[in-house]
Design a protein around this nucleic acid. Sequence first.
DNA 1: ATACATAATTAGGCTCACCTAATTTTATTT
DNA 2: AAATAAAATTAGGTGAGCCTAATTATGTAT
Lengths: 219, 219
Amino acid sequence: MTSLAEENYLKAIYKLHEKNGSMVTTSALAETLGINAASVTDFIKKIAAKKLISYQKSKGVTLTDKGRLMAINIIRKHRLWEVWLVNNLGFKWDEVHDIAEQLEHVVSDELIENLDKHLGYPKADPHGDLIPDAKGRFAKNTSKPLTECNPGDKVKFTGVADHSIAFLQYLTKSNIKLGDEINIEAVETYDNSFQVKINKKETKLLSKEVVKNLLVVQA
Amino acid sequence: MTSLAEENYLKAIYKLHEKNGSMVTTSALAETLGINAASVTDFIKKIAAKKLISYQKSKGVTLTDKGRLMAINIIRKHRLWEVWLVNNLGFKWDEVHDIAEQLEHVVSDELIENLDKHLGYPKADPHGDLIPDAKGRFAKNTSKPLTECNPGDKVKFTGVADHSIAFLQYLTKSNIKLGDEINIEAVETYDNSFQVKINKKETKLLSKEVVKNLLVVQA
DNA sequence: ATACATAATTAGGCTCACCTAATTTTATTT
DNA sequence: AAATAAAATTAGGTGAGCCTAATTATGTAT
């Protein structure tokens, strides 16, 4: 059997690996899970014994194929639920994380496949994060931070690098939505802010902090 | 905070009270929850201390107003999820119980209100059980077992008294569905079986066991 | 290479929700 | 009313998943 704690550890290891690459440390896990490092050491020994992670003492952990598949499956469920919450239940994109965090642990393969079908097999969640298929395969991600673009580029806003409620609400308030077309008019070299035109209408000035958290694809 | 175990105890106490009236015994709770009677004694002391039940040592327990409201709220969530699973996700009425049993514990008042709205404020779940409103109020239940009806009566099938998968599948196989019109043609006094006509078409013979588990209202 | 700071682990302990076995209470039968 | 059966409780114990404090390992600066 796979417990709630186990699922949360696997998901956290997966996400930390995505973000930082290589090995995931005990302290990084303790930090993201909000628990004590000593507790993490205890727990990773258990899931290492179950072959869900490989554990190098005092160095860190990586997911095994089995563990990675389980982690991806939880992420798949989380993102499908987020789609449902936004598209069908009328939630905003900044309101769904905590609810999806609970729903992702509901156990029923049939439920998830029916949900996926019901939603029309969505490719991405409300924040633009890709949704893996039932076998754990992701579509190729072609997006990059807006910071890597140059004046004159025409791009499409496809995702966020910062999932905080604060950032999501900032974008909502600024009337910037997933799918919007962004034309880069100028880049200020002094502070790296971007002057952009949204959907060929509004011109906006975006700070460096904002620009680095906007993921886009070439239009 | 209210734990999974606590919610399951409250729900079990509520349902046992509905079924048997008066006080709910330790052994009845142990039986329905599938745990040891000693464990039940332990736990009911804890929730009695939280004023969710009133506990008379060696006699049994009853829900307080607070505990009853919590129990009804869990039932409300369970039934709303069942409606969603059947109406929106394409599940059969005999497939939804275990999934709803998990979903009912997801905590978010806003989620449940949005779900209720999304479903069009349904009055009953796929088995005909009434869905209480957000304040815990049930509509008046006018149904009774088909056994209480007589030859010549025209009734509508509105619910089941037995929620077992076996009974639900028997009805599906027999092509008897919620909302069907039932005309009672004859009652066999020897074995209390009913000869009925379903939706003015098929004539069927229903055993005493089946008849007592069909809930109907006068048409 | 040594000292020091930081990270990880070990040891021992806690709470929750369960368990078994033994005992006590309640209800039923004679 | 006493004997017996059934139900409930008490006592003591377990594993999961967390904790703190103490110890050990690792990496960095001198």
